[in-house]
Amino acid sequence: MGVRRSEFAVEVRELSRDYISTRRNHLIGKKTTTIVKALDHISFEIQEGELFGLLGPNGAGKTTTVKILCTLLEPTGGHAFVKGYDVVKEAKHVRKIVNMVAGGERMLYYRLTGRENLTYFADLYDVPRKEVASRVNRLLELVGLSERADDEVEKYSKGMKQRLQICRGLINEPEVLFLDEPTLGLDVSIAKDIRKFIQEKIVKEQGKTVLLTTHYMYEAEEMCDRVGFLNNGELVAVGHSEELKRKMPLGFSIELLVTRLSNETLEGLKHLECVKKAITTDYEGETEDEKIDRLVINVESDKAVPKVLDYMSNKHCRVVAVNLRGPTLEDLFMFYAGET
C-alpha cells in the first residue's frame, strides 16, 4: 500500500461503478433489482498541470467519475489514483489534496454567512490559522462577494451561492480540483471571470490540475487542453480537442467568397476527390464591379484547402475571402453522443 506512485496527477484504470437499485411496485409486492452500469471499465490519465474536460450527455457517468475521485463514492471495480494515492485505500491523504465544486445549491451551510462557511471549512481542512482570514478575503474578493460576505447564505441568489461554492472548493488550495459543472447558473461576466481565474491563476500560474465537466461546449473549447467523451459509462474518445476534431469523419467546411465563378467551374469542383459537397449561395455585395458568389464546400480534412484554392485559381476565379470552419466541440459532442 502506498508504494505505487504514479507520474500522473490523476490516473484511472479500468474504473467501474454499478448502481444497484431495488424497487417494489407495491408496498408488499415483489422486489425487482436493476443494475445501472454508470461506469464500465474506463481508463484515462490527466497530466500534472493540465486542464482536462470530461464531456458527455446527461447520465453519461461524469459526476460518478468525479465523486469516486474525490472519495465520495466507492468504485465497484478498477482503481483510481490522485497524485499516486489510491482513492479508496489512501482516501484520507487524497482528501487533503483535492477539492470539488458541483453545480447546484448544495454543499453550503445556509444558516451561516459566506465568511463563516469558508472559515468553517478552513478549520476542517486545517488551513494554517494565520492564513485563514486573508485567504477567505481573497477568495471572496475573487468572486465578487466581499460586500455580501456577512449575509447568511440563505439570503444569497443562486449565482452567489455558486460563487461561494467555488471559494469553498479553493479554500484548501487543492493540488487537483474537480469542477462538476461549476458555472451552472452564473451570469455571463462572472462565469467568464471564473473561467479566466481557473485557467490563468490555478492552472497556468500555480500549476494545479483541474478536471472539468460541463455542458457548455464553448467553455470546454476555451478552457481544456484535453478532453474525454463519456457515453453510457464508456470513454469513447480521449485526446487533444484539435486532434479529435482532425480525426473526425464529419469533416470541415470551407467557405469561399469568389468572383467569376462559372457553372462549369462549380461542377468541376464537385468532382474533385477531396470534395464531398459544394453549394453556392448569393452574396450581397460586389467588388470592382464584379459579382461575388459565396461557396460552401464540405471536405474531409483541412488538407483539402490548398487543393481547392489551386483549382479555383486554375479556373481563373478570384478568391476574395476564405473561412475554414472545422468541426467544433459541439459537432464532436453530437457525434460521440450518438455512439453507443
Binding site: 465520495l72 482528501r95 454543499m107
Partner: peptide, 18 residues
Amino acid sequence: AAGTIEATFMTPMNRLAY
C-alpha cells in the same frame, strides 16, 4: 438532506472529532 454531508466528508477531518 441539506446537501452539506458531501462537503464535510470530502475534508480530511477526523469524523469522531466532528
